[in-house]
Design a protein around this nucleic acid. Structure first.
Lengths: 251, 251
DNA sequence: CGCGGTGTTGAAGGCATTCAATTGTTGTGG
DNA sequence: CCACAACAATTGAATGCCTTCAACACCGCG
């Protein structure tokens, strides 16, 4: 099994593989020139992950870092009695792993089918020292993650369930185009696939499954969204949804 | 007024001032050697801030970064209708400011009397390029902030009011010794000063003032804490408090 | 002493949760 | 192709926790 998911591809022409890579310039690799990229490529291994499968355990020393080539990874924290909270969602071309971290402070698992480009921890941390641009890129990445985390703190602490659900849909609508699961015909119309189950959405918003479901149907009956099926949502007017995200306007 | 709070101290012997500084080795300056420190010191200005005073506005391009020499700074985000959430607390010797950020995504204001050691943005960002160790230190700082933010997301999304209040007291009890406002006589006994008002605590925990107050008195009547006065708390048995933080055990 | 600010306490109400039952979806084997 | 099981999602009714609104106590200060 271990050998099935860690596919060596040293045999490919190093740079060629990266040149064909869909996230070559958007991921952290974008900070590297060809020579540096060749070195990184030498230690890189692709890996396929199934939905629900664990990538890093809690309290475990991760053995690799990774670029997300496709799919969505969720980062979760858990209380002793089982209550869960998703503390981060990673989309392609995000970077997975905490540099200089020791053990991972949270559980990382696949929310969808995921393709990773993995780098062994020790090799990669060594490269960080050699390539300042790479570390700098990771730093900026981390700053963005911190901003998102704080944005979500505002949501968790102060928004109503309705606003939470609307904010979530809005966030997916904005990020989905980059992961190729959305299309937009007219100006304000968007349709996209949800990368998360209702249970995951609840864990992300600090709500229960039932509350999430109720507000989906409320948004539907208010004409703000169209539920094509459980995983496919259409938004006729994105501004209308945005209004629901910040402030419960009347009724 | 501007001239009153930006006190030039170029006249002091550069290194001497830093050598006497209480956070010399704990703050980001710890990453610098004497020569580098001398350069940083040349652009540094100390600044005193009163409680409630704003350091950075929302949506404003900050003109400086700063080390917190003493006191506590709160970072807040606000919804359009005024609901507030504190998304970060900074204690000495933490670093204030978002590198490479453009405008600040949140409001920074003093929770207590604060002493800052400020560095003009452009100078400082330039130094980041010159001193990789300094940037590295900031990076590690940011990673720690991200961990704290995610820890707080778990609290905001999944903990009860009782657990939130207990978690807050526990966090202050742990950090207070480092900021010189706590003492511990016996093994499990701790006493400390709260750096925040009830209103600030509420904004930090995603609760109302009243709920915070109620759970303070509940913890008191349960014998978990002793309320010396509004700003002074004694904890007879810190483990007892820790139990309240994670899991509501019976009652 | 009175005043403003801060914190506490009480009663009523609302929003999200909990518990429970039903419907819908997916995949598997007959 | 359908029946069936297992899972995911929706819907309903009742409970409860936190909020809201309001009044009161406390504290420092002029």
């Amino acid at each position: 099994m271990q050998c099935r998911i860690m596919i060596p591809n040293r045999d490919q022409a190093p740079i060629e593989r990266c040149q064909k890579c869909s996230v070559r310039h958007k991921a952290v690799c974008g900070a590297l020139n060809d020579a540096e990229l060749a070195r990184l490529n030498q230690i890189a291994r692709t890996r396929q992950i199934k939905p629900g499968q664990t990538v890093f355990s809690d309290q475990e020393q991760p053995e690799f870092f990774a670029n997300i080539v496709s799919g969505v990874i969720k980062l979760t924290k858990t209380l002793s009695d089982g209550r869960q909270q998703i503390v981060g969602l990673l989309f392609a071309p995000d970077f997975l792993g905490r540099a200089y971290g020791g053990e991972s402070p949270y559980l990382a698992e696949a929310a969808t089918d995921v393709e990773l480009c993995c780098f062994p921890s020790d090799n990669f941390e060594h490269m960080l020292g050699d390539f300042p641009d790479l570390e700098h890129r990771l730093f900026e990445n981390t700053l963005d993650e911190l901003d998102s985390a704080r944005e979500w703190m505002l949501l968790l602490g102060r928004k109503t369930a309705q606003e939470k659900v609307a904010s979530f849909l809005l966030m997916i609508a904005h990020r989905a185009p980059n992961i190729g699961c959305a299309h937009s015909d007219e100006m304000n119309f968007v349709q996209f696939a949800l990368p998360l189950s209702r249970a995951d959405i609840a864990d992300y918003l600090g709500l229960t499954i039932e509350t999430v479901s109720r507000h989906f149907t409320k948004l539907k009956s208010d004409g703000v969204i169209n539920i094509i099926n459980n995983r496919e949502i259409a938004v006729p007017d994105i501004d209308m949804l945005a209004n629901r995200a910040d402030l419960e306007d009347a009724l």
